[in-house]
Amino acid sequence: MDINMQRLQVTSTEFEEEGWIPSQFTCEGEGTNPPIKIRSIPAEAQSLVLLLEDPDAPGGTFDHWVMWNIDVNGDIAADSCPGICGLNSKGTVGYYPPCPPEGSHRYIFVVFALNKNLPLQEGSSKKQLLESIEGAVIAKGTLTGRYEKQDKKA
């Protein structure tokens, strides 16, 4: 991250930084997204982008959520899609809940504030998204949660 770039504050009411994501937001629960709050959004921001990445996945980073053109009010409610959703690594559109095959995995919510809205269509790829935000990012922040299956058979 550019040392001069503003930092967004990304939090959740459901877990702390590096804390355990409650099972209701995973494949062992309801499988809905947790609530996310974004603060310190620059006044010139026009939209937000959110990525949810699992860098510990066996085949490389697994994208659980790809979303853009989120309103700059900074609140993402539980079980919602307040922007336009793209393809996750499972090949579906929207949130795909944490479901690590084994062990504890990190789930990193990466949020970007942009100085524009994006012209991408629903179902666009993460690659298309990252190409389209080049030069438009004015702030960035992350929130990392962890999850390990409680029911080893799930």
Rank of each mutant, 00 (worst) to 15 (best):
P97A: 12
I41M: 05
Y96R: 03
S80E: 15
G103T: 07
H105R: 10
G74W: 02
N33G: 12
I21D: 14
A45P: 03
H105C: 10
I41F: 04
R106I: 09
V111T: 02
E44C: 00
I70K: 00
D63R: 07
G31S: 09
V110D: 03
F109T: 03
P35T: 04
T92P: 06
M67D: 04
C99L: 09
R39I: 08
S47W: 01
P58A: 11
P97F: 11
C81F: 13
A57T: 04
L48H: 02
D75M: 11
W68I: 08
D75Q: 11
W68N: 07
I84L: 15
C99A: 14
Y107Q: 03
V111N: 00
Y95T: 05
P82K: 10
S40Y: 13
N73Y: 04
K37V: 04
R106K: 11
I21Q: 13
M67E: 12
F62N: 02
L50Q: 15
V72F: 00
S47V: 01
P34L: 07
I21G: 13
I38L: 06
P42G: 02
A43M: 06
D56E: 14
P101T: 13
F62W: 14
P58E: 11
Y107F: 15
D79P: 06
N88M: 09
P55W: 02
I108N: 04
S104Q: 05
I38E: 03
V49I: 09
S89C: 06
R39L: 14
W68C: 13
P98I: 08
H64M: 03
S80M: 14
T32N: 14
C81V: 11
L51Q: 03
E28R: 11
V49Q: 01
P42V: 01
H105E: 09
N69Q: 06
W68F: 10
G86C: 13
G83P: 15
N69T: 02
I36H: 07
F25H: 13
P22T: 14
E28K: 08
Y96A: 06
E44F: 00
G91N: 15
S47G: 04
I36V: 15
H64I: 03
T61A: 05
I41Q: 07
D79H: 13
H64C: 03
I108L: 08
C81E: 15
V93D: 04
L87Y: 09
I70H: 01
R106Y: 12
I108W: 03
C99H: 11
E44R: 00
E28D: 12
P58L: 10
E53S: 01
W20L: 14
T32I: 15
G59I: 06
V72W: 00
G74S: 12
A43Y: 02
L52C: 08
V49D: 01
Y107T: 02
I84T: 15
M67K: 02
E28V: 14
D63Y: 12
I38Q: 04
P58Y: 12
G94D: 09
N33Y: 08
I84E: 14
F25R: 07
N33K: 09
L52S: 04
I76R: 06
V110H: 05
S40Q: 11
S80H: 13
T61G: 03
P55L: 05
Q46F: 01
C27K: 08
H105D: 06
S104M: 08
W65S: 05
P97E: 07
G94I: 10
